[in-house]
Design a binder for these strands. Structure first.
Ligand SMILES: [Zn+2]
Ligand SMILES: [Zn+2]
Ligand SMILES: [Zn+2]
Ligand SMILES: [Zn+2]
Lengths: 130, 130
DNA sequence: TAACAGTTTGTTATAATATAACATATGCAA
DNA sequence: TTGCATATGTTATATTATAACAAACTGTTA
């Protein structure tokens, strides 16, 4: 059993906002949302984001410069992330497909290079948008 | 036979620089490299980059905000990209693995969502760095 | 030829995203 | 209580990307 990580005040504030959001949040949109809580500078947000990413509580959607909460217990370990992104409504879901992650985690290319980490972003139209 | 796309002056300048680079280039580093050629503003770079991406001549490495030339004839059609990235020396290679691209191109998640496009970035240590 | 549409270019300004650097505070263990 | 690691607050700045508008160039066709 892994000990639950204790979060600092700012880390908890930022995580709460991301977890309660319906869509990926951008750093500055988080900042604007916490100014009433006394956080005033981008650094404070980015530091919390960095830590939350490091411990696997959130992920960055690289193609959008936005952040989502992880809903997948084993991401802390694997550093393997996969997302589906709707190109119309921008809805993002973290994929949690064991077969896919096994396939990619064991992937090594022709040079024999082995990977410790990957990020996959799929684009298409979600059920509602197609 | 697909007609070769004719590039405009700025598009060709930017493509030449990216094709001759040993590593992914950032937009502003391209800009600094073409000021002797009379290109002075970021817009001119970003416009060329956008076009080159659209026609499949280059790709953006999202995790690095950098651009590489495509060495893969069928990327223009597929919009399916996969890269290996060395975490130490930053070397980036475009993967051209038919099995991988078939697997991902036919992937549909549990909701039945079908994808038109994907981007995959693998991280590890290259041969020289490990 | 002249009018036109489409695309490319040039230019200035500004928005959005992210980090540097330094001072202070807080929690905890030796 | 001293020391160390971590977290915070703050100001400034760097980096990445887009907006908005005017002018030039291209090929097409009335
Ligand atoms: Zn996750
Ligand atoms: Zn949608
Ligand atoms: Zn390619
Ligand atoms: Zn390397």
């Amino acid at each position: 059993m892994v000990e639950a990580q204790l979060l600092s005040k700012n880390q908890q504030i930022v995580l709460d906002i991301i977890e309660n959001a319906k869509a990926p949040l951008k750093a500055y949109s988080i900042l604007f949302n916490v100014q009433k809580k006394g956080i005033n500078a981008p650094q404070q947000i980015y530091r919390a984001l960095d830590k939350l990413i490091e411990i696997g509580k959130i992920h960055k959607i690289e193609s959008k410069n936005a952040f989502v909460a992880c809903k997948n217990a084993n991401c802390e370990v694997s550093k393997a992330t996969a997302f589906s992104i709707c190109e119309r409504c921008e809805k993002v879901e973290e994929l949690n497909d064991l077969k896919l992650s096994k396939y990619l985690s064991s992937y090594s290319d022709k040079t024999g290079m082995k990977y410790k980490k990957y990020n996959l972003e799929f684009f298409g139209l979600c059920k509602k948008c197609k």
